[in-house]
Amino acid sequence: MASNEEILAGLAEIVNSETGLDEADVQMDKSFTEDLDIDSISMMTIVVEAEEKFEVKIPDEEVKNLKTVGDAVNFIAAAQA
């Protein structure tokens, strides 16, 4: 089971590879759409890659609730528990 810091770092890596955004910009309080300018196709790619990396399931109906990076980190942490 990964710590929140490890999940954030892993998520930042995925976001960087998908969008080219600096990993340091991927912080807990950032909104995927407002701050990081991530479109829905990129978001789904990030979700699928996060599922694989962290060995969790993120149901499609959950994705719309993952507004910030922190929401995603917390969801993944809870799903791993």
Binding site: I41, M44, T45, V48, E51, E52
Partner: peptide, 10 residues
């Protein structure tokens, strides 16, 4: 190998 969920949206 991994199922439909892993087929990327792009």
């Amino acid at each position: 190998e991994k199922g439909p969920r892993r087929v990327l949206p792009m």
